[in-house]
Design a protein around this nucleic acid. Structure first.
Lengths: 215, 215
DNA sequence: TAGTGTGAATTTCTTCACAGCG
DNA sequence: CGCTGTGAAGAAATTCACACTA
C-alpha cells in the first residue's frame, strides 16, 4: 500500500485535471511560468486553494516567481498516471454507448476505446466509429489482451450492477457509471458516476429556490 | 432571498435526487413505508446521513415506523421543484448535442428538450429526434416563448464561455456545462459541470496509486 | 519584493450516540 | 420497543495570514 506520508485529499485529486488542462493551455500560449493567482483564475478557484493543492504534489514552485509551466505539467501528468494511455471498454452499445464511442475526446486525452460490449447478438460484430462490438463472454479475454483497466457502464439502469460485477470479475477495477442507478463495488475498486438527469434535478432545486423566481 | 432558517446544505441537495429515485423504485414495488436504513442501502450511503438529510426537508418520518414512501416522494419532488416540467435548450448541435437530444432520459424525467441551438447556418432548420435546430439569434425569443429555464452547453470548449454569456443574456440562469472548459457565471446563476475526460483522469489517478497496480 | 508554502482558524460535511416519540 | 430526529463530536475541506526565500 502506498500509504505515503502525504496522501492527496480526494477533493484535491478531483481538481488536478482542471489544473492540468489550464497548464496545457498555458504551454500552448508559450507561457513559461505561472503564478497561483493566474492558475486559480483559469481553473475557477482561489489562489490559496491552488497553492495548497499543488503543495501535495511537492514543492515545485519558486518563491517570488511562480511555477514552471512545463515542469509542473510533467509532474502532474505523472502523478495522475497520464504518462501512458489507458484503454477503456464501453459496456452497452445502445444510444449512449455509441455516442461515447463516437466521442473523440476520450482517445484524444489518452483513453482509447478498445472495445464495445453488448449482450445483444445482433449488435455483436458491428462497428461504431471504428470500435468493434464484442459479446460479454469476450470481456475477460479482451481485458487481458488489450490491457483494459477502466470500464464505462452505458447500459440501462437495470443491468448496471450486473455489468459492474462482470467488469470486476474481468479484473477491471476502475468504473465510470453513466447508468442512473446506484452500484456498489468493493473498497479496492474505484467508482465515479455521471448522472445527467441528476444534474438537471440539482439545477431545478436551485432554480426553484432562486431569489427572483425567473419564470 | 429565501434565507430560510434551515438552508439545505449543498451536499444534501446533491443527494436528494438519489433518494428520489430510490423512493420511485419503492413505490413501484408497492412498498408503503421505508426505514432510513433501507433507503440508505438503496442510495449507497449510511443511515445517519439519510436521516440528517431528510430532516432538512422537515419531520416527515414516524418514529418506530419509518417514512411513508408516497408522502416523502411528494415532499421531495416539491422541494426539488419537480412538480412541473423544466424545458431545456441544448447549445450546440454537434455530436454531443445531437446525442443529448436523442437521449430520452431528459424528457422522461421532466426536462423536455425544447430546442437545439447552433451557429452553423447549415444545421439551422434541421431536426434531431424531433428537436428543431435554431439560430443563436432566436435564443431570447425561444427562451421567453417556451419558458426555458435551463441551458445545456454542448459546444467545443472554445465557445463555452461565450455561449454561457448568451444564455445569461437570454435570462437563463441555470447551466449544465459539458464542454471541457471552466466557465464563470454571476452569483445569482447556478452552474453544474459534467466533464467526461476529467472523470477518467480521476480514475487514472486512483488506478496509478492502487495497492496492487493491476496492469 | 513578489509569490510560494504552510500552520492555524474557520467552515462544511459526516458520523456518533441517544433522547424522545409513536 | 423500534426508528426517527438531532445535538455534539469528529473529520475533511477551505480559507486566512504571514514567515520565508529565490
Amino acid at each position: 500500500m502506498p500509504d505515503r506520508a502525504r496522501r492527496i485529499p480526494e477533493a484535491t485529486v478531483a481538481r488536478l485535471p482542471v489544473y492540468l488542462r489550464s497548464l496545457a493551455e498555458l504551454l500552448d500560449e508559450k507561457e513559461s511560468t505561472v503564478s497561483s493567482e493566474r492558475l486559480a483564475e483559469m481553473a475557477g478557484v482561489n489562489a490559496a486553494k491552488v497553492r495548497k493543492d499543488l503543495s501535495y504534489l511537492g514543492s515545485y514552485g519558486t518563491r517570488g516567481v511562480g511555477y514552471d509551466v512545463e515542469y509542473l505539467l510533467f509532474q502532474m501528468s505523472r502523478e495522475l498516471g497520464l504518462t501512458h494511455d489507458w484503454p477503456v471498454v464501453i459496456m452497452g452499445a445502445g444510444n449512449l454507448g455509441q455516442a461515447l464511442a463516437n466521442y473523440g475526446g476520450f482517445t484524444e486525452r489518452g483513453f482509447p476505446v478498445a472495445a464495445l460490449i453488448d449482450a445483444d447478438p445482433d449488435k455483436v460484430g458491428r462497428q461504431y466509429h471504428g470500435v468493434q462490438v464484442h459479446h460479454v463472454d469476450e470481456l475477460p479475454r479482451l481485458a487481458e489482451e488489450k490491457g483494459i483497466a477502466i470500464g464505462i457502464i452505458a447500459t440501462p439502469a437495470s443491468a448496471a450492477q450486473a455489468v459492474a460485477d462482470q467488469l470486476l470479475e474481468a479484473g477491471i477495477r476502475s468504473i465510470l457509471n453513466f447508468a442512473p442507478a446506484v452500484i456498489t463495488v468493493p473498497p479496492e475498486a474505484s467508482l465515479r458516476k455521471v448522472d445527467l438527469a441528476l444534474e438537471l434535478q440539482i439545477l431545478s432545486f436551485y432554480q426553484q429556490h432562486a431569489p427572483d423566481p425567473a419564470r
